[in-house]
Every structure is written in C-alpha cells, then in structure tokens.
Design a protein around this nucleic acid. Structure first.
Lengths: 359, 359
DNA sequence: CTGAAAGCGCTAACAA
DNA sequence: TTGTTAGCGCTTTCAG
C-alpha cells in the first residue's frame, strides 16, 4: 500500500533517481528514518522489548507491517552468532523411518522457533563430508546427525572442534562423546527372536546384516546371543548381508531360501527389508504368516496396513525425533553439560506375518 | 593445532588476557594477518579467483585448511544478498509422495551447490503463513511450494512483493502467475477410469475427493467427465470427500460400500488412500483384484510391493522434484523470464489390484 | 596482482 | 525511555 505511484523511469537505467543506496528492501534503518527514531529503538520495539514505551512499540510495529518489513536473519545472525537453524543430516528421507524421524524433528523445531536445514548423503562418506561441511558453513545452532554407514569419529572432528552442538540419532559412532537418542536395538532383536522361537521356529534367518552401522551391529548381536542362549548354531548361509532396502529384502529372502537347509522364519534389519522379503516369498510360492514367518523392525506407518500386516519391533520414531530435537535444544542452551544418552525400549508388535512353525 | 598452549586464566574472568575481540573463530581477517596480506586477497584466493597469483592462492588455501577455517555464509549473504538456500514448503513429508519429491529436490539442489531449508504445515493455513514468513526471513534465493489446501493467491502476496522466486509444485493456486511443475491430473483420472470401464465396471467410486487443492479438483473432474462421456451418472453416494490419507481410505471404502447400490471399483485420490481402502475391503471380506477393483494415484515406492500390487497412475515424483528445482534455479538466474508450466503426462500402471467386473 | 575502505542489516553496550 | 556508536565476517569497487 504505497501512496505514491511508481513513476515510469523514463530514459533512466533501473537505478532509482533518488538514492542509489541500499537494495530497495525495507530495513530497520528505513523504518527508523520514517519515524524519526533510532534503529536501536526500532529493533527493540519489533522484538517487543519492555525497554521501549508501549506507544512507540505499537507505532513501530504497525509501520513495519505497513511497509512490508521482513526481518533479515542473516544480518541478525552475523551480529548475534545464532541462526535459529537446526541442521539435520540423514542418509535417505525416502526411507519412511527417516521421514518419520524428520517430521518429528521438524515439528519440535518449529514449535521452538527453529528451522530445519536438511542435508542427505545416501550412505556415501564423501558426500556426507561435503554435506556436513556445507551445513556447518550456515552456522546452525546445532546439528542432528544419523551418520552414514562406515563413518568414524574422525569424520566429525571438525564439527566438534568448531564447538557445534550435535546429537546423534538412531545410529551411533563409537568413541564420540555426544548426546545420543536411539533404541535398544539389541533388545529389539531379542524380542523378535524370542517371539519366533516361542512359535517353534528353529531355523531363523537374518536379513539385512551390516556391521557398518551401530543399529546393524546391535540387532545382529541380539540375534546371535539369542541363538546361543537357545543352543542354536549361527549359520552364515541364512544371514544375508546388505543395506536395509526393499530391494535387498527381496534378494535376501531368495538367497536364504536357496540354502541347503532353508529357514522357516526370518528377522529383518528393518521394515523395508521385511516388505521386500514378503514380496520375495510370494515369488517363491510362499506366504508370510502361513508358510513362513517374518518380523520387521521399526513399525513404520505402512507396516500395519500390509497384507499380512507385519509383525515388527516398534521403535517410536515420533518420540525419538522429538527427543533428539529437545536434547539438541538443551545442549545448545548448556554446551558444557554432560553428554546424555536416551535409549528407548522397543516393543514387539505381533501381527499377521508370523505364525507357529509347522514342519 | 595451535602452537601456544592456553594459559590457565588464573583469577581473571573468562575474557582472554590478550585480545577481547572477535569470537575466537578463524576468519578471513585472522588468516590475512597471519599471512600479512589483505582480507580481499584471502577472500579472492579462497574462492580460487584468477585475480590472485597461483602462489598466494595455494599458500592461503593451505593455511586456511591448517587453521580450520570455515566459510561464514551468513556474513557472505549479508554482503552479496544471496544465500544459496532453497526453501521448501510442504504439508507433510511423512507422505511418501512428498518425501520422494523432496528427495529429488534435495539431490538436485545439492548438485548445484544449494542447500534445503525445510518447512511443513500439515494443511494448516495459519501454520503455512507462519512457516513461510519465517522461511522468507532467511532470505532464501528461491522457494518451492506445495500450497496447503484452501490457500488463495493473497496468502502468497508478501512473498511475491518481496520478489522472491517461487515455483509451485504439484498443486497450483489459481491466479498466481508463477512457474509450475505438476502432472496432468485430469488426464490421470481419465486413464484410471477408462481402465476400470474397460474391465466392465460401471459403478465406480471416488475416494478422497477434495475441491480445496488443484490436484483434487482436476482428478475429480477427470472422473466426472469420463462418467459423463460414458453416459454414467455421478452418484454422490459413492464419492467420499476427505484428505488423501491412509485412514481416510479405510473410512472411505467402508462408506461407499454401505451405499444402497455399492460400487464394484474405486479410483483413489492417491496411493495412500488406496492402501487404506485395500485394508478396508478386507474388513468387509472383500479382496482387491478379486471382488473389487482399486486404482491409486502417484505410484509411490510401496505401491509395487503391496499384495495385491497396486494398479495406479504413475506421476514421476523424481522428475517433478528435479524439474521444480531446475525451474527454480533458472528463475533465480532470470527473474524476469516468462513464467513456465511443465505438466507431465501421467501413465497407467496396471498391476494386481484391478480385475474384470464379475456380476 | 594486491591493499584500503566501505558497507550489507542488524544488535548490544554505553550514554544521554 | 531513547540515541550513538561500533562491529559481526564477508565482498567489492577503486587505487596502487
């Protein structure tokens, strides 16, 4: 709503006739001039400081609105050394597990006046390095990280040295004294195994094994321990090593089914792997929950809707995401506090994809 | 690697004895002093400008690395008025359709040296307004937007007035002369309908109808037009109006099945709705692809893996996401170019959830 | 090829 | 209660 119409700039170039200064946007400076007060007053007024008189505050605020003022966070950040940005580094947001975590983080961040700067790196270490370096250059107040497979502590040294508050989410790098929010993955695998053993299964495959991420190591450990406790052998022929994707679930089940002594059940690294495995079973003329038992891990939204619905280990992505953001906010507030670890206890959700063993 | 050890600050407060200036981070200034050159030279050198001698360039770069220098993008942005940030506003990234779009955008952005600032608003107009205002304050170079249901052109006026380059993705607000990347949704619905009609179905429901988003209007139009072209009546009793979620698919199918003259098939606003509907069918003792035919829309990753696999309309999220980012980059490069529209042609993917009508 | 100097828009002392 | 001033870290003329 500018009162004066824009005069057609005749023959002049697009530099305004009046003052060639500035970028044409309305700044604190402009508002201050307009009101014949100082920029300091405008700054304080806009932020609702009690230091300025109520009258000036409302006068400033209404003028600012009229003039279409927009706060410049780059400028403020330069001055205050805070950006209100939370950086998030994930490997793949197409994976519903990470999408659910991200949604919870975003929700929590927004609720606390923070915004999310996102970077992904597809389990690629070089790319992770580039992405994290770039994210850091935006000077986020903190960072939530789910490290790519094979990461080592040294990969994050430059972030720590810069004093950037970081919380690790879901996956953990050994030897990094950082806040961590995750699940008791070993326990989750034990729950899955005990469920299958209780149903009478003795040949149980593991699909999506990987030693390059903590969740992989812990889940596999739970698997091995439970086998041992029940006096069952660990048979590498029915362990399929791969990243936890839909495609690998399909390949994995076919691989273990081809073993000399095939399994009657499988636990999967995650739900995606289990979904792929279900498909693979059908290719082999088998049906989960009838001829074969399948347990997933995470309980992503679609797990409950599959047919058969997937028996899985619930990992509370919503709470994990929320908590990781809260941890980060607290870490930012108190950089010197002791690092904290929150390990949520997973729960078994029994649905249709598992059934009693039948010779 | 600082040579001099930090002397214990005896009785002094935590202000360093030497110089109370700066924030302790290494800046261009610091590097310049260290090398006895000007900050201008350092700046140029770090960016590999041909203006500086090869020798100084490498000297500066290696020192910068040694000192652990990190480029401060807030500072650069303030100066250059560019952030290399692309803002993305979506309503829900837990929906795989949007997650897939976002992944493609992020990939493209990163490939062009840009980062993604993410905001979500859950189809909530107030929240959309707050989120977009905040995103704008970070001065992104541009914005990719999928407007919340019920948005009107006025909601985005402040962004346009600020001259912020915007491309609309997937959904479109009438009366906004902005770049747009989307699908020919009307045509998609026609494909779905012709498929079902070709299978002999005559009573075909529509699940997830909504007039508050362009995709909803267009898909429903395709549905209505095809009915009309075949001389079939539009029966509101088998049209279920709701947002396209898993839950609403379940409710929707139950609602239309309860009609006096129930349908033998349904087309769904999106795949999520179809997934819910499949579940709902089972609750009613029906099976998609046998007793009932179901067509989804989008072809998200899980669609191919469901049982039965979902017949759906492929919408090429990957290309849409990529193209929207490319459009934005080009729009940023040339703000005055004519707005462009890219409407991808969807394709029918026939899978197991549809079957010939049987009285 | 390099340096000096100004300034982007904001906030935080400190004075008045 | 408000104004003055300096400066965050960078880039960009303009001189040399």
């Amino acid at each position: 709503m500018t009162d004066d119409a824009q005069p057609a700039a005749a023959d002049l170039p697009d530099v305004p006739a009046s003052a060639p200064l500035g970028r044409g946007r309305v700044t604190l400076q402009i508002i201050a001039q307009h009101l014949a007060v100082s920029t300091a007053t405008v700054s304080l007024a806009l932020r609702g400081s009690p230091l300025v008189a109520e009258a000036t505050r409302s006068r400033v605020q209404s003028i600012a609105r009229q003039m279409g003022y927009s706060y410049n966070r780059s400028a403020a950040s330069l001055r205050t050394d805070r950006t209100n940005i939370l950086a998030v580094g994930f490997h793949d947001i197409t994976n519903p597990y990470f999408a659910e975590l991200l949604a919870a983080i975003e929700e929590t961040a927004t609720g606390h006046g923070r915004s999310i700067l996102l970077g992904t790196y597809a389990e690629n270490l070089d790319r992770q390095d580039r992405v994290l370096t770039t994210l850091k250059e935006y000077r986020p107040d903190g960072m939530i990280l789910c490290p790519a497979a094979g990461s080592v502590a040294a990969d994050f040294a430059h972030l720590l040295e810069a004093g950037l508050p970081i919380v690790q989410l879901s996956r953990e790098i050994p030897g990094l004294a950082l806040d961590f929010v995750g699940s008791d993955d070993r326990h989750g695998a034990v729950l899955a195994m005990e469920h299958l053993l209780g149903l009478g299964h003795r040949r149980i495959a593991f699909l999506g094994e990987s030693q390059r991420i903590s969740t992989g190591r812990n889940r596999f450990t739970g698997y091995c321990e439970t086998l041992a406790r029940h006096g069952l052998p660990l048979d590498r022929a029915i362990v399929h090593s791969a990243q936890g994707t839909r495609e690998n679930g399909l390949k994995g089940i076919q691989a273990v089914l081809a073993a000399a002594d095939p399994p009657s059940a499988a636990i999967c690294f995650n739900d995606l792997t289990a979904f792929g495995a279900m498909l693979g079973l059908r290719h082999c003329g088998l049906e989960a929950g009838v001829d074969f038992s399948l347990v997933g891990c995470d309980d992503v939204q679609e797990a409950a809707q599959w047919y058969p619905a997937l028996t899985t280990i619930k990992n509370f992505q919503d709470e994990m995401g929320r908590k990781s953001a809260e941890f980060l906010l607290e870490r930012i507030a108190d950089p010197n506090a002791q690092p904290r670890r929150l390990i949520l206890t997973p729960e078994l959700v029994v649905r249709g994809s598992t059934a009693p063993f039948r010779g």
